[in-house]
Design a protein around this nucleic acid. Structure first.
Lengths: 226, 226
DNA sequence: CAGTACTGTGTCCATCGTACGCTAATTAAA
DNA sequence: TTTAATTAGCGTACGATGGACACAGTACTG
């Protein structure tokens, strides 16, 4: 019931010639403006009013093109994901390319980590990304379930890193870091290992570390299966 | 500035004897009721009004104990996380215990996957979980940054699995699955591998698969470092 | 007993998503 | 060419939300 409206927005059908006035708005324009808004001011800044202001139209005009806010966010999400990358090489280099492309794609749109998550209706771009990753795993001895697990593992890693690097919008990331430093200064005796871990300046590449770990583990499973 | 209020809620200071009327409410009661509400009806059902109704008080009474909704959610989060587990054995069995305990802890509170994420002010329980995981990694040759990376990897895996298993609250998970089946039925020609992957009934244990992959990869890095 | 600090409450407000009906524009049918 | 059907954008209105603020009563302190 509600899911139908998501499908309608994400998979538009080509209607014939329409009758009324020429539309001044379009799903594409709305999505582009909403994405820009979310990139600049965070997802919670994407309100119907602000969106309409940015587009120079009335708030209610948006509802002619998008049934509601949820569907709008789904549309933003699939649009911002963009078209999937072309992969080459064996499964390992292919998956590495895939994950790095996803990382590059997510970085300018940190809010994707909140919207491209959980049970949801897939859009064409998202399905394309999934298909590309499964293509890299084709020919390995992994079963269908396990291939999906691997994709979930890699996309989960990208999301986690985006969240870690990104920052909450309500309060600044620097504020949070300050607050946590203050907490550790006050209660650090109870958490010595944590204090020690945060004491060192983080110079390593968390994305690379996690990606290598995952691919190493997947290689072991492929070796098992083969 | 805003982060201060989070610290104040999560790390309460012991004030001396207070003067006014005996409080009928407490942070603990509020948190418990809010957690129950979120477990039953989803995080977005946790509204100040409903929370007050459940507690039998006026909406504004809540603000005497919790400065705002954000801080309330932070409090719910740290409370629902509970106390960290005791680990034994080598790093590998310790981390496995840790991750399985987190998985068991998250399952009754799927909304944790949305709240225990991103830059945020840590509460005592959350720091305790972190300390426990770092304890398991103590003695391995990994550097401080890499230890934090491992913990992020494991907690990210738990979150991803909770989201996958849980379900969106707005629309039923079954609805979403139906919608996606319809989409694949209509546009499946463009995504043959995806169709094939979803065609098989998922009998595997995604949590176990991912956990094993990650631990295998971490073992390789520890071997490198050692 | 006075004063003071604190809890719970009622009222009020800006903002949010969105339902509904009107108007004007455009094309299909007569 | 007229007329009817359909559609885009808009204005108004409504319920729900988070929260500011002032006021009441209550308990401890002097």
């Amino acid at each position: 019931m509600t899911a139908d409206t998501f499908t309608a927005v994400l998979w538009p059908e080509d209607h014939g010639p329409r009758r009324g006035p020429k539309p001044a708005l379009s799903k594409e324009r709305i999505a582009a403006e909403a994405i820009a808004l979310a990139d600049n001011a965070g997802l919670e800044a994407v309100t119907m009013q602000r969106l309409a202001d940015g587009l120079g139209c009335a708030k209610m005009a948006l509802y002619r093109h998008v049934p509601g806010r949820g569907e709008l966010i789904a549309l933003m999400t699939d649009t911002a994901l963009g078209t999937p990358p072309e992969l080459d090489g064996d499964w390992r280099t292919g998956l590495r390319q895939w994950t790095e492309a996803a990382w590059r794609g997510f970085t300018p749109h940190p809010w994707l980590a909140y919207t491209a998550v959980g049970p949801r209706v897939f859009g064409p771009n998202e399905l394309g990304w999934l298909e590309a990753a499964l293509g890299a795993l084709d020919g390995t001895g992994l079963g269908p379930d396990q291939r999906l697990d691997v994709v979930a593992l890699l996309s989960g890693h990208v999301r986690a890193l985006v969240l870690q690097a990104g920052g909450a919008y309500g309060t600044t990331e620097a504020e949070m870091i300050d607050a946590n430093h203050g907490i550790l200064a006050a209660h650090g005796d109870d958490f010595p290992l944590t204090v020690a871990a945060f004491g060192h300046t983080g110079t390593d590449n968390a994305f690379e570390f996690g990606l290598t770990c995952i691919l190493e583990g997947v290689a072991a499973r492929i070796a098992d299966a083969g």
